[in-house]
């Protein structure tokens, strides 16, 4: 026992995490695996049920599409921010951070105002005479998707700005001197170098979108349930605690797997970059 100090410093955190994160989790998940002896029946039932699978698939679909759209919107924007003058860069970063710090109820509420029956889009379409009756866009997978993209785009942009800042402008100029036009040098130089950043951002967006509660609740409601709103419904409305536990476990497993796989990919790509440098 050479040095007890570090363990003394770590102990309170370890105790609290064990008692109030791991123990409660185990007490929720245990009954789903050991109702009375090992049994995966709860999980088999989950994966056999069409309604459950629809919700699982919808959740995954929204998370995947949101991640892809955020990446497509985020990469050029982050590159633009990183090439701006110092003053503009500060302003644009502030504009990107601001939604991140704004409550997700407010951010979802914004889309109720836009997509709702009395919302901006319906009003514009009615005024233009393109439709006669307001179109119901809320409480659909589409509205959840829009809200989710809106929720996580800033995270993608901010993750990428950090990466883009480290890409030397000389590289672009070198590519151009070798005969590539701006678009090509962006696609051939900047994009490959920012891939590890895209993956880091994708992990954050995907796991965030997979587990988000507020936005799907407000924009999807009971008509477009996702896993997190489904847990709440199972537990609170239907008192199906085993069912809620199963969903919780499925969510944790998906989060973990996606995180591990994408992070491993990012590390591998990062190493490749280092070897080249």
């Amino acid at each position: 026992m050479k040095n007890k100090i570090p363990y003394l410093f770590l102990l309170p955190g370890i105790v609290l995490l064990l008692f109030f994160l791991f123990l409660p989790l185990v007490s929720v998940l245990w009954p789903t695996i050991f109702p009375d002896g090992l049994s995966l029946s709860a999980y088999i039932a989950f994966f056999k049920d069409e309604y459950y699978m629809e919700i699982l698939m919808r959740t995954m679909r929204i998370a995947v599409i949101a991640t892809i759209v955020c990446a497509i919107m985020g990469v050029p924007t982050a590159y633009f921010i990183s090439r701006c003058s110092k003053k503009w860069k500060g302003i644009l970063i502030a504009v990107s951070i601001f939604p991140m710090l704004t409550n997700s109820v407010v951010r979802s509420f914004a889309w109720i105002n836009i997509l709702g029956k009395n919302g901006v889009i319906n009003k514009v379409l009615l005024a233009m005479g393109l439709i006669k009756q307001p179109v119901g866009m809320l409480y659909t997978e589409f509205s959840v998707l829009m809200g989710t993209i809106y929720l996580f785009l800033p995270i993608m942009i901010m993750t990428l700005v950090g990466v883009m800042d480290n890409i030397d402008n000389d590289l672009m100029e070198a590519a151009e001197s070798l005969g590539a036009n701006k678009m090509r040098s962006f696609l051939k130089v900047v994009l490959p170098l920012s891939i590890p950043g895209v993956i880091t951002g994708a992990v954050l967006v995907f796991t965030g979108a997979l587990t988000a509660y507020t936005t799907p609740q407000l924009l999807g409601g009971n008509k477009s349930l996702v896993l997190s709103t489904f847990i709440y419904q199972r537990a609170m409305t239907l008192n199906d605690w085993t069912g809620a536990g199963v969903i919780a476990f499925v969510m944790i497993v998906i989060t973990l797997v996606v995180m591990k796989v994408l992070n491993a990919l990012a590390t591998r790509l990062d190493r490749r970059g280092e070897n080249h440098a």
């Binding site: 994160l21 409660p24 989790l25 587990t211 997190s228 709440y232």
Partner: peptide, 12 residues
């Protein structure tokens, strides 16, 4: 805690 969804933390 970052890998456990918030709704699950609250539920458990």
């Amino acid at each position: 805690p970052t890998i456990v969804p918030g709704i699950v933390v609250g539920y458990s």
